Simulated scan of single mutants.
Amino acid sequence: MNRVVHPIEEESYRRLRARLDTSHFPPLTRAVVERVIHSAADLDYATDLVMDEADLAKAHAALHAGAPVVVDVAMVGAGITRRETVCRLGDAEAGPGLTRSAHAIRLAHKQVGPGALWVIGNAPTALEELLTLDADPALVIGLPVGFVGAVESKAALRESGLPAVSNVSEKGGSAVAAAALNALLYHPTSAEEKL
C-alpha cells in the first residue's frame, strides 16, 4: 500500500536535500538518514549514523513479511505508524541491578522470540540488556539518548556484530528511533515498486 505524502513533508524533504546531498547513500541507508534528519532537523545525523545496507535490506524484508517490532518505551511505539508494536515497560519492575527498561526487554524477548526488529530510543539499559539475550534480531535500532550510558551502549551494539542502526554521539531519542523504523516501513517493497 503506497503512502500518501503530505505537501508539507514533501517541501521539508526538498529543503533537506537542498542543504545536504544524500544521493551517494544506497537506497535504504538514504531513506533512514533522511527520515532521521527530518525527524530531528539535525543534519549532523548524516555523519553520526552507522548502518549497513545489506543489514537494512534483510530487515526491510523481515519487517514487510510481518516480523514483530519491539520498542523500549511507548513513546517510540507512538511514533511508529502503520504497525503494531510490543512494549512491555508497563509490566516491568525494577530490582537489584535491573532497571524497569531492562526487565521490559526480558519480558518482550520471552514474548516475541527470535527474528524481531528492536527499536530502542530511550534507555541505554534496555539496549545493554538486549545484548545479553539470544534475541537473534532481524535488526536492532539502537538510538538511546543521554549522557550516561548512551554512547557506551551504542558502541557495544556495533561491537556485537548484530545487524543494527546506531549512532556515535549522545544524540538519539524516541523520535529518531521511530523515524529509522518508519523509513523501512515506508520504503516500498519490490512488489510495490512494480505497481
Rank of each mutant, 00 (worst) to 15 (best):
S174L: 12
T85N: 12
A177M: 15
E34T: 11
G115K: 01
A78D: 15
R17N: 13
E152H: 08
A116H: 03
L195V: 14
E129N: 08
V33K: 06
E128D: 11
H109K: 00
G97Q: 01
H38M: 03
G173P: 12
V168C: 15
V168Y: 14
V4M: 00
H109G: 07
P137S: 00
R82Y: 15
Q111F: 09
H38N: 10
A108F: 04
A108D: 04
H187P: 15
A74R: 11
V148R: 05
E84C: 14
M51H: 03
A65N: 04
L20F: 01
A180R: 05
T47F: 14
S190K: 14
V5R: 02
T22E: 03
S169L: 10
T125I: 05
D21I: 04
A135Q: 11
M1S: 11
G79Q: 10
I8G: 13
E9S: 09
T125N: 11
I141A: 07
E10L: 11
A150K: 10
N182R: 08
V32R: 01
A59H: 02
L89W: 08
G90V: 09
A191P: 07
A178W: 08
R3Y: 12
W118V: 12
A62Q: 10
N122L: 12
H60A: 06
A18H: 13
V119A: 05
A177D: 10
L133I: 03
R88T: 12
G66H: 01
A135S: 11
L98D: 02
L143D: 14
P68H: 13
F25Q: 06
T22I: 00
L49T: 04
A135H: 02
A102T: 07
I105P: 02
H6P: 10
V73K: 05
G149H: 13
D42Q: 14
V71K: 02
R3H: 08
L133R: 01
R100M: 10
M1C: 13
R88Q: 07
V119Q: 03
A183S: 05
V70K: 01
G146Q: 07
D55W: 00
A156F: 10
F25I: 03
E128Q: 15
R35Q: 02
I37A: 07
R83P: 15
K58S: 15
G97V: 01
A54C: 05
P96K: 07
V76A: 01
P27K: 00
S101I: 01
T29D: 06
T22S: 13
A138Y: 06
E10T: 08
G173M: 06
G172K: 12
T29G: 03
A46E: 08
G172V: 09
L195H: 12
G95W: 02
A57F: 09
E129G: 11
L49G: 04
H60K: 00
H64E: 01
A67T: 06
T189I: 14
W118Y: 00
I120C: 09
L131I: 06
R35E: 10
A92N: 15
A155F: 10
V33Q: 05
T85F: 11
H64K: 00
A135C: 01
E11S: 15
G172W: 11
A183I: 05
L127H: 02
A191F: 06
S190V: 15
A102G: 08
V5A: 09
A108Y: 07
A155E: 14
A74K: 07
E53I: 08
V151W: 08
V168R: 08
G115T: 02
V71N: 06
A62P: 03
L16C: 06
D48L: 09
L131D: 05
E84M: 13
